[in-house]
Simulated assay, not measured.
Amino acid sequence: MSHAADHSANDIVGINWGSTNFRAYRLAEDGRLVDEFTKAAGVAGLGKPGMAALIDELMARWPDVSAVYASGMVGSNIGWCEVPYVAAPAGVGDVAKGATRTFMGVVKVNIAPGVCCNREFDDGPDILRGEEIELFGFASSNPAWSGLAALPGTHTKWVRFDGGRITDFFTSMSGEMFDRLTAAGLLASIVEGEARDCAAFHDGVRAGHERRLGLGTLLFGARARVMRGRLSRADSASYLRGLLIGSEIADALAIQPGLAKASVPLIGNGTVCRLYASALSALGVESWVVDSRDACIQGFLALHKAMTSSNADVN
C-alpha cells in the first residue's frame, strides 16, 4: 500500500501479536498508516527462534524506523518474555512506564504490559493483554468519552473507562465456547452454516438473557430443538451464538448496571460486533461499532507519545 517515498526514519512500528496472528503497522509521525503486514503466525506456534525470525523478516521490509512497539500475547508467559501486568486503574502513561525494552534478535522492541484488575462488583481478578492498546486508541480519538466499552471476540472484554483510565473489567469466553462447541462434540453435529442476525439468533439471545435455566441446560436444549424439528440446522449456529451472547450480556448488566443506560462502543471485528449490537439493541441497550484496526493504530501512537514524553529510551 505504500511507496518508498512515503517512508521516514521517524516512522514507528506497532505490532499486535496474539496467540494466532501477527499484525504490524508502520505509522508516520502525523498518524498516517504508511504500510502494514499481517501473517497467521501467532506466538503460540512459533517459539523464540520463530518469533525472532519473524521480527527479522519485518525489519527487512521496514529497516529504517525510529521505534518498535509490540502488544498482546508476545508479552505473556508463552511469548518472548513475560511482562508484568499494570494494575487498574491504569492510563496509557502507566502502560508506558510498565513496558519492557528487550531485544528480539538484533531488533530492539518495547513490549507493552497487559492490565489486571480486581472487579468492584465481586473483588474477582481479571486480566487482559493487547486490548489496552485498542482502548487507549479509541479514547485518544474520543477524548471526552468515559463509560463502558466492549471488545467482542474469542474472549470478550467488558471494560469501565473513566478519565482516560481503565478502571475495571470482566472477560467472557463465549466466543471460544461457540468455536469449540460448533467444531467438535455433540452440538457440532447439528450445526450447518455460520451464525447470523436472524429470528433464531434473537430467540437465543432472549433465552440466554432471561436465565430461566442454566447455560448448560440451554445449550443441550439446542440439540433437542433440532432433533424435534423446532429449530432448523441452518439456524442452529445462530441460536447457539445468541444463547451465549445473551447470557454474556446478562453478566454485563449484573456486573456493570450502568450498561442499561449507556451507549456502548463495540471495538472489534465488524461481523461479530454487529451481532453484539443487534443483541444489545433487542435488550434496550444502544451501541456503535468501532473498527479495531483503527483503534489499534491510534493506540500505538498514543503509547509512543506517552513513552517519548516521559523521556523513555524507546529507540
Rank of each mutant, 00 (worst) to 15 (best):
G79S: 09
P49W: 12
A24C: 06
A67P: 01
E82V: 01
A70M: 06
G50E: 08
R61T: 12
I78W: 02
D56V: 02
R23S: 09
A87V: 10
L33P: 05
I78L: 13
R101I: 11
P89I: 02
V86I: 12
S76H: 12
W62V: 11
A67L: 10
G105V: 09
G105P: 09
A70I: 01
V68R: 06
P113R: 12
I55C: 14
G79E: 10
E29L: 01
V115Y: 14
K39N: 05
V43T: 01
I111E: 11
P84Y: 13
V106W: 05
R32L: 10
G105I: 13
E29S: 15
F103S: 14
T38M: 10
P113K: 12
R61D: 12
V34S: 07
V65Y: 02
R23L: 07
G114D: 09
K108S: 10
V106S: 15
Y85T: 07
G91F: 01
E36M: 06
A28C: 03
S76M: 09
A99Y: 01
R61C: 11
E36L: 06
V68P: 04
G114M: 13
G79D: 14
V43S: 06
G47F: 03
M59K: 10
A52E: 15
A52W: 00
D35N: 04
P113G: 08
A99M: 15
M73G: 08
A53W: 05
I55Q: 08
A40L: 06
G105A: 14
E82C: 08
A53Q: 10
K48F: 04
A70W: 05
A60F: 00
P63M: 10
N110E: 13
A28D: 11
T38D: 13
G98K: 11
V43A: 04
N77K: 15
M73C: 08
V74R: 09
A99F: 02
V107G: 04
F37A: 04
A24G: 06
P63Y: 14
G75Y: 06
V86G: 11
M51W: 01
V106A: 13
P113M: 09
V43D: 09
K97Y: 01
R61F: 02
R32I: 07
Y69W: 15
K39H: 10
D35H: 01
A87T: 12
A112D: 05
K48R: 15
G79C: 03
G114H: 15
Y69D: 13
M59C: 13
V43E: 07
E82N: 12
A96L: 09
S66T: 08
A40M: 04
A41P: 00
P113V: 07
V107P: 00
L54Y: 11
F22M: 06
G42T: 05
E82P: 00
L33W: 03
S71Q: 09
A90L: 05
G105R: 06
A96P: 08
G93K: 03
V107T: 15
M73A: 08
V83C: 07
Y25C: 10
M104A: 14
L58P: 03
E57P: 00
V65H: 05
V34M: 09
N110Q: 11
M104N: 05
A24F: 12
D94R: 14
G50N: 15
V95T: 11
G45W: 00
A112L: 15
V109M: 14
A112Y: 04
F37I: 01
F22V: 00
I111S: 13
